[in-house]
Computed example of a mutant assay.
Amino acid sequence: MNDTVASAPAAAVASPSGVLLHPSRGKVIAITSGKGGVGKTFLSANLAAALTRRGLRVLVLDADLGLANLDVVLNLYPKLTLHDVFSGRCTLDEAIVQAPGGFQVLLAGSGLVEYSRLTPEVREDFLRLMEQVVPRYDVVLLDTGAGISDVVLFALSLASEVLLVATPEPTSLTDAYATIKVLATQQRRQLVRLVVNQAARPGDGRAITAQLQAVLNRFVGGDGRAAPIRLVHMGDIPVDKAVREAVMRRQLLLLQAPGCPASLAVGQIAGRLVDTVLKPA
């Protein structure tokens, strides 16, 4: 089945949460996971670099409001963060910084309890933020937290596409299934894109996608409480020692080891996103 998404109309459209997104000027992709520690933030940063190389204007927004770590992956030490924007201590332009790889980032602080749950204030702050940033970029990547908390689900509701990261480990796949089920039942999502990280063999990701799809077909969407949901396999990132080396050095893999297997895999995933969901209107 062809998963190519038709070009979006120029008019603004409302997301499931009500925020007006402008598909002709920006596409919002949420990168998430059921289980933590599967490489979600690593993919967000390196995918942004790969999309920037293709000539796109990219912003990565750290939507893990309570336990942010995008700054660690990128070796950045921001003086101003998303929380300063929300509190009015700085403007949006003052908080957006240039990252290695040529893209821009809006970082969040870590360990702030007031942002660990979805209060009406956090919701409204985030909605206003998205209305400002989406028109400025070709693509906005939301690096969400892991799991299905109310903050994570709200961030996902703002995205036109969800890119779910999982590893072949049973715990990761179980949590991935739970996340997909919630997206189908609560947000009526009909499509989720899957990236399998730390794949041991070529073809692992397609097999895992087929297995998850079979379980979803059996248990989700058949009773009318959820929309039938389709998984699209976007690619595998193989086990590669260069990944650990880049993470330990707090450097982008695509800059440190651009020819390694994992870098090439991220580049291929970026190409598929461009071909399927980021085509110009």
Results as ranks from 00 to 15, higher is better:
D3G: 10
V5C: 10
A8D: 14
A8Y: 14
S15D: 15
S17G: 15
S17I: 09
G18E: 11
S24V: 12
R25F: 05
K27I: 08
I29M: 11
S33D: 01
V38R: 02
V38K: 03
G39P: 05
T41Y: 03
F42Q: 01
S44V: 02
A45Q: 02
L47H: 01
R53L: 10
L56V: 01
R57T: 13
L61T: 04
L67C: 01
N69E: 08
D71I: 06
V73T: 12
L76N: 06
T81R: 06
T81G: 03
T81V: 07
L82C: 03
H83N: 13
H83W: 00
C90G: 05
T91P: 05
L92G: 09
D93Q: 12
E94R: 12
L106G: 01
L106A: 02
A108I: 05
A108C: 08
P135Y: 09
R136N: 10
V140C: 10
G145T: 00
G147M: 13
V151L: 14
A155N: 15
L156Y: 01
L156T: 02
A159N: 11
L163T: 09
A166Q: 06
A166V: 00
T167R: 03
P168H: 10
P170C: 13
L173Y: 11
Y177D: 06
I180W: 03
I180C: 07
K181E: 08
V182W: 04
V182D: 07
V182I: 15
Q187F: 15
R189N: 02
Q190Y: 00
Q190P: 01
V192K: 09
V192L: 11
V195L: 07
R201D: 11
P202M: 00
Q211A: 15
L212P: 07
L212M: 15
V220K: 03
G222Q: 14
D223G: 01
R225H: 14
A226L: 10
A227F: 09
I237A: 10
K241R: 15
R244S: 13
E245N: 04
L252G: 06
L254R: 00
L254S: 04
Q256W: 06
G259A: 11
C260E: 03
C260S: 15
P261K: 00
